[in-house]
Computed example of a mutant assay.
Amino acid sequence: MPTARETLLDAALAALTDRSWSAIRMADLAAAARVSRQTLYNEFGSKEGLARALARREADTYLQGVRTLLAAPAPPERNLVAVAEWTVARAAARPVLRALLTGAWNERLPAPRPLRPGARPAPV
């Protein structure tokens, strides 16, 4: 059974399919995930914290997929081709991942700011 955190992140990704990040309300996400707003704020602290968690989960999931593909028992060049093909397909279907990989954030996506003021975002 997914945790409240995972359910909230899933709700945020689903909301991004038809609304821009600025139009998404925390109360709507809590309702979609069937948790209280307090649970949402306990998990993420703020909408910015949710954006960071969403980007982090997308990056972690992507990197795990790359590790899995590279570890396949096949010639290294075949594994690299598999990673490239999978990356293109995955990024096409997942706008947050595409923005992480390309730096092409737009007003529809939650471009998370660094935790420390003045720090530059780390390249993925």
Rank of each mutant, 00 (worst) to 15 (best):
A14R: 13
A14N: 13
A15W: 06
T17E: 14
T17I: 05
T17S: 14
D18T: 15
R19S: 15
R19F: 01
S20R: 15
S20L: 06
S20Y: 10
W21S: 03
A23W: 01
I24E: 06
R25F: 01
M26S: 15
M26A: 15
M26Q: 14
M26T: 15
M26N: 14
A27C: 07
D28L: 01
L29S: 02
L29F: 04
A30Q: 10
A30Y: 10
A31Q: 04
A31W: 00
A31G: 01
A31F: 03
A32D: 14
A32L: 05
A33W: 04
A33C: 07
R34F: 05
V35E: 07
S36K: 12
S36R: 13
S36H: 13
R37M: 04
Q38P: 03
Q38I: 13
Q38H: 14
T39H: 12
L40K: 02
L40S: 01
E43Y: 13
F44A: 07
F44E: 09
G45C: 02
G45R: 06
G45S: 05
S46P: 11
S46T: 15
K47M: 02
K47I: 00
E48W: 00
E48C: 01
G49H: 04
L50A: 09
A51C: 02
A51T: 02
R52H: 05
A53E: 13
R56M: 08
R56D: 11
R57H: 07
R57K: 11
E58W: 00
E58L: 00
A59F: 07
D60T: 14
D60L: 14
T61W: 03
Y62A: 04
Y62K: 07
Y62C: 06
Y62G: 04
L63K: 15
L63Y: 13
Q64G: 13
G65N: 12
T68P: 00
T68Y: 02
L69P: 03
L69D: 08
L69H: 06
L70S: 01
L70R: 05
A71Q: 11
A71K: 08
A71R: 12
A72Q: 13
P73S: 12
P73D: 14
P73F: 08
A74C: 10
A74P: 02
A74M: 11
P75H: 07
P75M: 10
P75E: 12
P75I: 06
P76T: 08
E77C: 01
E77Q: 07
E77D: 10
R78H: 09
N79T: 14
N79Y: 02
L80W: 08
L80H: 13
L80N: 12
V81Y: 02
V81I: 09
V81C: 00
A82F: 02
A82D: 08
V83P: 05
A84V: 12
E85P: 00
E85Q: 06
W86M: 07
W86I: 08
T87Q: 15
T87G: 11
V88L: 11
V88Q: 12
A89E: 12
A89I: 06
A89C: 00
R90P: 03
R90L: 02
R90K: 14
A92G: 11
A92I: 04
A93Q: 08
A93K: 07
A93W: 01
R94P: 00
R94H: 08
R94W: 00
R94N: 07
P95N: 10
P95C: 06
V96H: 04
L97W: 09
L97M: 13
L97T: 08
L97Q: 09
R98E: 03
L101Y: 11
L101N: 13
